[in-house]
Amino acid sequence: MKKAVVIFAVLALMLVPIFAEEVGPFYDQPIFITSAGQSPGALQMSVLARAVQLTHVFERVLSAEEIDMSDIGTVIIVAGASGKGLGAAGIDTEVEIARVLGIVEKAKESEIPVILVQLEGAPRRGPSSDQIVEALIPFTDFLIVKLDADEDGFFTDIHEEHEIPILFFERTNDVREILRNLFL
């Protein structure tokens, strides 16, 4: 099933240039990128967005109250718990989940789509990371997941149960093309 989803998604994205005039970008810029768990993945997402020349803002620990959603087209959350990152931010997993939930709830109120990304793969799976993902699923419109993060079917199950579209990728660099096709 996972392979079918991947093939479908890749084919769908390959068809985008052909129908570019009719289809256009799937999601809007500017993009607000933040971390859910304070792992380095969110900063890498900013690097990827910059490489594709997407208009975006990256903030590691901003709360919902500090964000003006009227200036935002899409919210990208990069999920991954890092003890080091949370410690540096002076917060724990519960506080981090509350922060990010505030952001996605505000995005929903403003009808701004939320893309949830698992960028760092299997090394960034674990109880805290999974807890973060599960908390955000009800607000997620699209999933982008590193293939080796789904060896146990965790994200495939989410996709099937919640009917959230999902794209898998093998290498972090592959995400450039995904972003290009989603936003340009």
Binding site: P40, L43, Q44, V47
Partner: peptide, 26 residues
Amino acid sequence: AQTIADLYDALLNNAFDFLDEGLAWE
């Protein structure tokens, strides 16, 4: 790979040329 992830911010600032076009080696 893991040691890059642990120090990615600093490496991005100070050693961009070492990284994989700004991304962590996997």
